[in-house]
């Protein structure tokens, strides 16, 4: 079947066979990774699946002559962001299985599928009806002007046409750094936090690795507020030890 799709793809465009194969493999990697993110019970597995997807997207960037973005994608996304995710997961010690089948909110899952399906079908319907030849001129400069490299053209666009946006993102990054420092800093009055912290540590070390439906924490202040139907769906918080 894959071969049929590849042939169809070759026939509907002026692409070469290697191009089609590259696209097909990358698309498969992307979709597998994405599904892995959504369906993995363990957040660590989700994060690793995310790397797959990001890598596939980087490949498709190269395939579409966006070399600089591909490199940035790998460095920033796969290199920094996913590592940050993993770091937080490890730091908080939440690398355990989640009960994916349980859904405390009634109607959330069917509605989610239906609405997303409507949106997806709508997008595809628009795609089918679209006529891509607009005849519009490139606003920010061509992707191939004068045989210059992609990095040259992108850099020129970013530092001329989008200079103001570029400066604004610089400010945004500074604000984000300051905000992150403020958030992560320990409050001066940390007696309460120390207790919570040590309680979590005890829990982790003491209860081993056996699976089970035991609610892990927060029962006293969490259960009362959960609707009765959610409480009925044990385990209460949908989390299980891995």
């Amino acid at each position: 079947m894959t071969a049929a799709i590849v042939l169809a793809a070759v026939q509907t465009s002026r692409a070469t066979i290697p191009d089609v194969i590259t696209f097909a493999v990358a698309a498969a990697v992307i979709l597998v990774g994405a599904l892995g993110v959504v369906t993995s019970a363990n957040p660590v597995h989700s994060a690793l699946s995310l790397v797959l997807t990001l890598f596939g997207v980087a490949v498709l960037f190269i395939e579409q002559d966006a070399q600089f973005l591909a490199v940035v994608q790998v460095i920033v996304y796969a290199g920094a962001i996913v590592v940050l995710f993993l770091f937080v997961i490890m730091y908080l010690g939440v690398d355990r299985r989640e009960n994916i089948e349980a859904e405390p909110l009634r109607g959330q899952r069917p509605l989610a599928f239906v609405l997303v399906a409507i949106a997806l079908v709508g997008i595809l319907a628009m795609l089918a009806a679209a006529h891509w030849v607009t005849g519009a001129h490139a606003v920010a400069g061509s992707t191939t002007a004068g045989g210059k490299s992609n990095v040259y053209l992108l850099g020129k666009a970013v530092f001329t046409t989008y200079l103001f946006a570029f400066e604004a993102t610089a400010a945004l990054l500074v604000v984000a750094i300051v905000g992150a420092v403020m958030l992560a800093r320990r409050p001066t009055n940390e007696l309460e936090d120390e207790e919570l912290e040590s309680a979590a540590g005890d829990d982790e070390s003491g209860s081993g690795a056996d699976a089970g439906g035991l609610p892990r924490h927060g029962d006293s202040d969490g259960v009362d507020d959960v609707p009765s139907d959610a409480a009925a769906n044990a385990p209460a918080h949908g989390e299980a030890r891995s």
């Binding site: 989610a112 609405l115 997303v116 409507i118 949106a119 709508g122 997008i123 628009m126």
Partner: peptide
């Protein structure tokens, strides 16, 4: 938000 997205696309 998803409902809004579906409505806009529709």
């Amino acid at each position: 938000i998803a409902l809004g997205l579906a409505l806009i696309i529709a």
